[in-house]
Amino acid sequence: MKFICEKNKLQEAISVTQKAVTGKSAMPILQGLLIDASEGKITITGSDIDLSIETKIDANIIENGKVVVDARLFGDIVRKLPNSSIEISSATDNSIEIICEKTKFNLIHMSADDFPVLPSIDEKNIFSIEQKLLKNMIRGTIFAIAQEESRPILTGVLVEIKDGRINLVALDGYRLALKSEAIDSDGSIKAVIPGKTLNEVVKILEDEGVVNITFTSNHILINLGDTKIISRLLEGEFIKYTSIIPEEYSLKITVERNKILNCIERASLVAKEGNTNLIKFDINDEFMVLTSNSQLGNVREELNIILQGEPLQIAFNAKYMIDLLKIMDEEEIYMEFSSSVSPCVVKNKQDDNCTYLVLPVRLLNN
């Protein structure tokens, strides 16, 4: 193997493919990157079996070949090299030589034959979506996935495509996040993508261009042209989320998102010290009072609102409210309530493309 390529392109390709290398595998080969020099391109692949990322870059291929190198060390070396052309070649049966200007490294490699073969996916049933739109939808839901592995299906995000719309849904038992957008597709898909996969996908997606996506019964392929991401899907039945979202409410308020977010963030400073993160909402005709008490003190915030319905007292974990308010993008939002022990539903005032649900914390007097 021997090739010459630009440092910046190689560094970017390493950075992308390293996202699939967790370093936690018992198989040493999975702590490496597969480098394949052939057909005028360098193909670099990282994998932990569940998630694989492959990217191609242009290079001057002098001699075809492929090796596996330690992902972390190879990435560190390339990053520290001068911004110039890099020549990489096989030095011995088990090492490669990396030359850049007056710097020379010899690096031990592993056999490419031991690297796992990526799943073969037939890209017939493709649906396309704007990268920016998909990125915003992932960001708008992924914060609500379950962190504990006790219910594995909830550590992923449900993707539903039907009737010309795409829905992304995440829930963890305390809150639910739903983003919905119209897309040009007449297909029907229902699959759960691991949150770990989408956390890496959102770092790779850009603000321009289209991404092509293919689902199989077990895998998803996200094709960005030179970069392909293949991930296994989570097995099992996702919760019927539509039955969780209340269809009716007895109280609705209109409020400025930034103002209520700032109030809750300030109130949570005291709430955190009490280890409960509890914020109490006292909703009245023209304003809402937010309070929090702990051993170190208390706080009171007053906020103007527009109210439809009867006054209500209800309490929430501040973190859950802060997470969703930060991710929303409209200045005015609706908050819908049914009772002090029923979920609160939060929506945009203008664009009906998201629904957030937060369970309240039960107050003693309720």
Rank of each mutant, 00 (worst) to 15 (best):
L221W: 14
C263V: 06
F337N: 10
E123F: 10
Y249A: 10
V289I: 15
T214H: 00
I145H: 11
I222A: 06
K66Y: 02
S217V: 08
L154A: 01
F287A: 08
S95E: 04
S84M: 08
N94C: 01
E148V: 04
F316V: 10
I260F: 02
A177P: 03
V289L: 09
L278N: 14
V255D: 00
K9P: 01
P343N: 10
E12C: 03
R300A: 10
P194E: 13
K259W: 01
E331V: 07
V78T: 13
L133M: 07
L30E: 01
F115T: 08
I153P: 02
E208S: 07
S120T: 15
T254H: 07
I49C: 01
N8I: 14
Q295V: 08
A71H: 04
E181Q: 13
D48E: 12
I239D: 06
Y174N: 12
G195Q: 08
L154P: 05
E206P: 05
L154I: 04
N212L: 04
T254P: 05
T291N: 06
I245F: 09
D76V: 14
C100N: 14
D226E: 05
D184V: 09
I220K: 00
N365G: 10
Y241G: 00
C5G: 04
P311I: 12
I88A: 12
I126E: 01
T141Y: 02
K319A: 11
K19V: 03
D207I: 12
C100P: 07
S128K: 15
P311W: 15
H219C: 03
M321L: 15
T22V: 01
I264N: 03
D323N: 05
I138H: 05
D163M: 02
D329M: 14
Q313K: 15
T355K: 05
L325M: 13
G195V: 04
N275E: 09
S250T: 15
G187N: 09
E208K: 11
K179Y: 00
E181C: 02
L290F: 05
D93Y: 10
V117G: 07
M27S: 14
V69A: 12
Y356D: 05
C100R: 12
E330P: 03
S243R: 01
I138F: 14
A112D: 10
I189H: 10
G46Y: 01
T291K: 12
G225P: 09
S111L: 11
I322R: 06
D114L: 02
V358F: 03
D207R: 06
S231G: 12
L363G: 11
K56M: 13
Y356H: 03
K319Q: 14
L34G: 07
P152E: 07
I153H: 03
V346C: 08
I322T: 12
I264C: 05
V289A: 12
D70C: 02
K196A: 08
F215P: 03
V67Y: 01
D122F: 09
I279R: 00
M110A: 06
C354M: 12
L296D: 09
F105Q: 08
I29Y: 01
N353T: 06
S180W: 06
P119Y: 04
D184L: 11
L133C: 06
E206N: 07
N106E: 11
V210T: 13
P311R: 15
T291P: 06
